[in-house]
Design a protein around this nucleic acid. Structure first.
Lengths: 124, 124
DNA sequence: ACCTATTTGTCCGTATGTATG
DNA sequence: CCATACATACGGACAAATAGG
């Protein structure tokens, strides 16, 4: 579970963590059913408090992307959400992220267009 | 952190404080990553209100010299990075996810537009 | 059934910057 | 420039749920 924090960014730590994991899910690196690291372990790995990681997990749980259970840990939701619904959750999260990052919606669209053109060049 | 104030100067207090700290950074006395004193402590040390020190910190933050974080304090910025990398990762992932879900890129754009219009209706 | 370990859930207090007057 | 209320982050402590010895 790769989570990178930007200490210079004004974005809150727990939102940075949530965004990073959301990206991991969006990229397919963490597929439905995948087990996320315990809050304590991830917190130590990235140098934050356990509650800060837990708070990030709660954000993703409220978005429907992650399931939390005592004694079991955090997992990426599976059958609770259809794949199209999951995509919508991810896109909504990205839009929120863009807004917080100060990006206009149009700028986000431009970013997507540029990525799309790069991928079509690369072949994929 | 040595900060000297001149009460007779017409320059505002918070600008005097900012200039002093800027000099500390410029001289290398406070290197990137260095932790600046909490506003409360510095304020007591030099005999001004806590918010006056914070205003000075804000000036330096706007200049890109200082990073401020709630609950953690003020530090000298390490690297001025374009931190849209994480957002880009999310968008790339959303595009891949859309492909898996059988959506065309255009359909994904439409989805984003519909979400955007819903949010603008909802009133944020 | 018991105990231990793990992990999330929740609360307290403390420290810090943020936002609104 | 100051006062007040608020949100984030940390640290500690303990409860609750789960799994395994």
């Amino acid at each position: 579970m790769k989570v990178e924090l930007n200490s210079d960014s004004p974005e809150e730590l727990y939102l940075q963590i949530a965004s990073s994991i959301r990206g991991t899910i969006a990229s397919g690196d963490a597929q439905p059913g995948a087990v996320l690291p315990p809050a304590k372990a991830l917190a130590q790995a990235i140098g934050v408090n356990r509650l800060t990681v837990l708070r990030a997990y709660h954000v993703l749980r409220d978005e429907g992307l992650v399931s939390l259970r005592r004694g079991l840990g955090a997992t990426v939701t599976t059958d609770r959400v259809t794949s199209s619904a999951r995509l919508r959750l991810i896109v909504e999260g990205a839009l929120r992220e863009a807004k917080r990052a100060g990006l206009d919606d149009e700028q986000l669209f431009d970013l997507m267009r540029s990525i799309r053109s790069e991928e079509s060049k690369g072949g994929e």
